[in-house]
Amino acid sequence: MSHDLDPRAGLRETLPIVFSYFGICFAIGVIAQTNGFTPLLVLLLSLFVYAGSVQFVIIGLLASQSPILAIFGAAFLVNARIILMSLTVAPHFHEQKLWKNILMASLLTDETFALAMNKANYTGSKLTFRWFYPAALPPYLMMIGASMSGALLGRYIPDPEQLGLDFAIVAMFIGLVYLQLSADRTLDRRLQTIMVAIVFVFIYIGLIFIPANLLILVVTLVGCLLGVVLKHVFF
């Protein structure tokens, strides 16, 4: 991760996201196609709903004939963590133009958020449109292209998971966790390491009784709250 906030750095630093989106978005295209989505509908799904978890919800709940309001509710809850990410990353941008802020926020995902927060560790916590937009647009284009490829080629690939590409996103989060630990100076490193351990326990226990696609949101809310308490009591 460089200290530069220019478009070239953005394009370069987003490559891992672009590659890792290929696998998951291709898989979404395949799954949508096997659930009766035409390539046109897959294209519209990718264009309008830039959130893999929500796309899975839409495909799954439409297939099970859920009422439309239930799908809207699930879409909101599954993706509600993006509200926290949006609140967290926004103060790092000092961009005044409304349209630029809307363009940037529209391309915020788990991954572009994590990349931006890591980047902020190297730039004195400052982020710019010039860096973020070139970093955030290619993953969106990859998502559209890969899901379309999945929709068109899916019938020829019996089990896309076999390729191992689905692990790319997990690998990226492993890297991002490590980079966050080694570079973030706003929080004590020991406290951050303790938080990682706490999150592990929360995820394990939470999986017993909280549906997986809601768990991230619950763990984030409870985990951050506990983090604030720990910081005040021990650090």
Partner: peptide, 9 residues
């Protein structure tokens, strides 16, 4: 705390 918690989750 959001970045480290969400990334590890």
């Amino acid at each position: 705390f959001v970045p480290i918690v969400i990334m590890s989750a």
